[in-house]
Design a protein around this nucleic acid. Structure first.
Lengths: 141, 141
DNA sequence: AATTATACTTACCAAAAAGAGAGTATGCGT
DNA sequence: ACGCATACTCTCTTTTTGGTAAGTATAATT
């Protein structure tokens, strides 16, 4: 499993481009939808799978399972299905025995990875600061 | 409640700066911590409070409660406490009756908002694409 | 004297999420 | 004939999460 750096300069440039053009959206309906979407997508397993697929390209089901420590088969299936439904990954089934299914990121999936890159970097950058803050908070209580 | 645009160009520039310098972090321990941190922080209520405080500056407890539709007192207290612990907000208590407590973002909190900005923009941009993908997925099943 | 306002805390309960483990289909190697 | 490998699905149980409602303190107001 790689860290924060598995996105290419091109992908990062894409994210920057987005940041250049924040739109003045205030429609509450869109707001709600956007929120729900972020909740869906900003999930632990989704992000780990995103990262893994971005790094390796095409992967089989059990290959992803082995790469991501601690994920259960159930969660892997479930997360991949939701990601497929949202158009983040493609799922290719080969009708052979034993079964073979390959997963890969779509362009949309890659763009999400790039967008999240900023948050990853933020988290990594401020990790110590936050831990220090927590410790201070906990000891003064 | 405002949409995506409540962050200043300076904040966005900060986020871009982060994107310019992705570090080659692969340490599994840091990876795990970063992940846990993102999970903590990429939560529905945290993001809404972040947005609200970024827009309004300083706010009282019940003011935030009124601004964010659907949040319970319990969740508001809980989320604000965790944000304070992580160093994202400051909490100022005025010893008066009835009680008065003010909340505001720290620099760290603002930087998180800026980092998330890219994801907000991504979500808003690709909302329709994703809904279309879902619909296609659901009807072909 | 009762009511109101504010910022909580605590207890209880329902719902949702997640983990564990067994079951399924089937061609291939031994 | 038997077990293995793969990618699931299904059920059962546990854990986590979140909502509701009640309690607390006290000064000002009616």
């Amino acid at each position: 499993m790689a860290g924060i750096s598995s996105f290419t300069p091109a992908q990062i440039a894409e994210a920057e481009h987005h940041l250049d053009t924040p739109s003045p959206e205030t429609d509450p309906k869109v707001d709600r939808l956007v929120n729900e979407l972020i909740g869906r997508v900003a999930d632990k397993w989704t992000m780990l799978i995103l990262e893994e697929l971005n790094e390796k390209g095409v992967m089989r089901f059990s290959e992803i399972g082995r790469a991501i420590e601690g994920i259960s088969q159930k969660m892997l299936t479930q997360t991949l299905r939701l990601m497929e439904r949202d158009g983040l990954v493609t799922r290719t089934v080969y009708p052979v025995v034993p079964p073979k299914v390959e997963y890969a990121l779509t362009a949309l999936g890659e763009s999400l990875g790039a967008a999240f890159c900023g948050v990853w970097v933020w988290a990594e950058r401020h990790l110590e600061e936050i831990e220090a803050s927590r410790e201070a908070f906990d000891t003064r209580e």
